[in-house]
Simulated scan of single mutants.
Amino acid sequence: MVASLGLSAAFVVFGASSTLASVFARIVVTPVRNHAEDVEVLAVIDGDDGTRVILSADSETTAPGTYSLTFDGGASCARIGRIVSFDPRDGTVEREVEHVYSGDLHAAARGRFTGFVYPTPQDAGFDAVDVEVPVENGTAPAWRVDPPAAEDGTPRAGDGMWAIMVHGRGARRNEGIRAVRSAQKLGMTSLLVSYRNDGDAPDAEDGRYGLGTTEWHDVQSAIRYALDQGAEDVVLFGWSMGGAVALQCVDRSELAHRVRAIVLTGPVVDWIDVLKYQAGLKRIPEAVGLVGRWLLSNRAGRLVTGLAAPVDLKSLNWVARAEQLRVPTLIMHSEDDDYVPVGPSMELAERNPDLVRFVRFTRARHTKEWNVDRRKWDHTARGWLRAVLNATRPGAAR
């Protein structure tokens, strides 16, 4: 009887663990379309010196810099500026409202504090053109932003090149608007792209993220589009999972030789590490997390994950593959990133110091390095790119 009860209990535990692992694996590859609005909008104050908003205080809303507050289920957006006051005792923070792009902020009760600052390039003051990039299942919308002519006619390091901006998981192409001015200063045309399952581009047939192993095809299509439009070469910019996409592109694409450099912000350079970390945050037992990763990376897990093909997690581990990275890469990553740990970014740079440069940020959490210190982000990116793009490429004619 005791043995029978023990066996039954074991089956129950096994079943519960398998279910948890299945849910974890499926969530990882399921596109994020609706984001939780977890910030309380407590008051909106109009004064002679402008509008201010009082929000519930947390690590995001009390960070320095400029952000967006989306509300009305993501349909409305306001640009939020500096902190006016912060009282940890009552858990509130008061910040400037720089601009309300859409919606009635006075009527909002909750919102989402997020890193993109401008809903469209036009909102940032850029003249953008809507273009369509041919991809496998149709066309993917993108924004093209050309640079102004050099003021004094002096050649710029990026003249004739295109910067292809690759957003992260659950984000959209407006994430890359923050980098456009830096690209313009170097003389580069910016192409802010969409890719499969992001809500703008055509979905993949399985409707699942490939964590970079499938999305790179759409970035390759963007590179081909840029080259067809006259680009001499390209630079890839990537945020979060967009970093994983960019790295897969330079690893697998037939056009990889046209990528002169990669600029990554808060990138996923090792999905195995990220999945372990995320499982720990959710208090998922290590063994259950291991089963979840197995489901993602094996054909037997397809019925659970919905993936058309398993994800090769080993190919997404650039710490282990450091010596295989052959494109100059800049990584800007905050030490307090609470979604993608900074450790693998640092280790990748340590293992391939000739090609990878790591620059540490603080208080930026996940992919908000530009928001917290845009001057540092801009100077770092432009300074590094200027040096890389002006250098003679290996094998190039002298």
Rank of each mutant, 00 (worst) to 15 (best):
R321W: 07
E286C: 06
R178C: 01
Y225C: 03
V219R: 08
Y225E: 07
T114S: 09
A396V: 03
P353L: 11
A149Y: 11
V23M: 05
L5S: 14
L42W: 09
Y339C: 11
A256Y: 00
Q248K: 15
V180K: 07
T329N: 02
I272L: 12
G47R: 10
V388S: 09
G280C: 13
D38E: 11
V28H: 07
L348I: 09
L247W: 03
V250G: 11
C77I: 05
L236T: 05
V304S: 01
P141D: 05
A36K: 15
G74Q: 05
L191F: 10
G238K: 00
A391D: 14
W162C: 02
G210I: 09
L5M: 14
S240F: 09
D203A: 15
A308K: 07
L191E: 05
R52N: 10
V259D: 09
S221T: 07
H99S: 02
V269F: 08
S315D: 11
A3M: 12
P202W: 05
V23H: 10
G210M: 03
G153S: 07
C77K: 03
K185M: 03
M241Y: 00
A309C: 07
N352Q: 14
R382P: 03
L348H: 02
A63P: 08
R283V: 11
S345Y: 03
Y277S: 03
I331M: 14
G160E: 06
G115W: 05
R144F: 09
D198K: 05
V131W: 05
V32K: 04
D159S: 04
V245K: 06
P328L: 09
F71N: 00
R252I: 04
G91M: 06
T305R: 07
A364Q: 06
I83E: 01
N317P: 15
V41K: 01
S4H: 11
D146F: 09
Y101V: 06
G50Q: 12
D373N: 07
D218R: 00
I331K: 01
E232W: 10
T19D: 13
D206K: 06
A222D: 07
A396L: 04
L281A: 03
F126W: 05
E60Y: 09
L211Y: 06
A391P: 09
R224W: 01
V274P: 04
D373K: 00
A149S: 13
R79F: 02
L389G: 08
S194Q: 08
T62N: 12
L227F: 01
S102E: 08
V342K: 10
F14G: 14
D273K: 08
L389W: 06
T362M: 13
V28P: 00
H333R: 07
D233R: 10
R208P: 03
A75Y: 09
L69R: 01
A43E: 14
A43C: 08
A57S: 10
R302K: 15
D198I: 00
G210C: 13
L307G: 06
R33K: 15
K368Y: 03
G168V: 05
A57H: 04
T213V: 13
K368S: 13
H366G: 14
P119W: 08
V268H: 02
S240M: 14
I272D: 03
S190I: 08
V372N: 11
D104T: 09
T62C: 14
